[in-house]
């Protein structure tokens, strides 16, 4: 018997809707589960007190400071390097063997699993360069990890600026660098920032890299040469070693809220960029 196309369509649509509902449902469940279990344990003192008794008591202040420092180091290195690379690829060169090689390297780097960055950071920064388990080692390793994200988004943002803007500037006597700074960068900034913010997000959520390169000290780091734990590492240790479910939930809730805020900012920026482009 041949099933009528209309019937097939109805069945297919039903299946697709079910799949969509379960995919979205699963993701909503994850967020809901953590927030429901964690938010009620989050308080001002939880955010500002030191880690006591390996995390059984006290707050997560050192982990917050550790996260902040680590993000500062990683983005402080990856953003300038990545944006400069993107400007080179998008504005200063034509497609050739060199760019292909560079782009291949960056694309591969994007796929390298974080544990490999962890091993790399451990051997190069912690051991060979003698930086030890420190915020600096961790930040450098994270910088290598987020670099491809920064470069790719920035390059895309630069390429989305109309060529005619460059022509106008050049025809008015702009040098190559002025073309970039005066008539390309101003319009690519939202896109570039999006990439940087996504990089911040990845630095915050990463665990494997940080454990291998920054250690997991419970003290508040006072300089970039101190060992420190990030919120993600703190959460991992609490959860894996069954130290305190309550505090694990609370840390996860703080972590998820931070990530959601950061990513929402990134998407809002990107959205604004798109709208701006349509208006122009």
């Amino acid at each position: 018997m041949r099933i009528a196309p209309r019937t097939t369509q109805a069945i297919a649509k039903g299946l697709l809707l079910t799949a969509t509902a379960s995919a979205v449902g699963a993701l909503v469940f994850v967020v809901g589960f953590v927030l429901a279990g964690g938010l009620r344990h989050v308080s001002w003192s939880f955010l500002t007190e030191p880690i006591l008794d390996m995390g059984r008591a006290g707050g997560i202040f050192p982990a917050i400071v550790g996260t902040l420092l680590m993000v500062l180091v990683s983005v402080g290195i990856a953003a300038p390097l990545g944006i400069a690379s993107a400007i080179y690829l998008a504005e200063y060169t034509r497609e050739g063997r060199l760019t292909q090689t560079i782009r291949f390297g960056i694309n591969c780097l994007a796929g390298v699993p974080s544990i490999i960055f962890g091993l790399f950071g451990f051997i190069l920064f912690v051991n060979i360069l003698g930086l030890g388990w420190s915020v600096l080692s961790g930040g450098l390793s994270l910088a290598a990890m987020i670099l491809p994200t920064v470069i790719r988004t920035a390059e895309e943002a630069l390429r989305s600026v109309p060529t005619s803007y460059r022509d106008v500037a050049a025809s008015l006597g702009a040098t190559r660098w002025q073309v970039v700074t005066k008539s390309v960068l101003p319009y690519a900034i939202p896109g570039i920032l999006t990439g940087v913010i996504l990089g911040i997000g990845r630095s915050i959520e990463e665990t494997a890299v940080v454990i291998f390169t920054a250690g997991s000290a419970v003290q508040t780091p006072t300089s970039v040469f101190d060992s420190a734990r990030t919120m993600a590492v703190h959460f991992y240790i609490l959860a894996r070693e069954g130290i305190s479910n309550e505090n694990a939930y609370a840390t996860a809730a703080v972590l998820i809220c931070t990530i959601l805020i950061i990513n929402t900012t990134a998407y809002t920026l990107m959205h604004r960029l798109m709208r701006g482009r349509r208006a122009a």
Partner: peptide, 12 residues
């Protein structure tokens, strides 16, 4: 390029 200016087909 400052001495020899240019006006394009599409208004930019």
């Amino acid at each position: 390029r400052r001495r020899v200016g240019m006006v394009y087909a599409m208004p930019i």
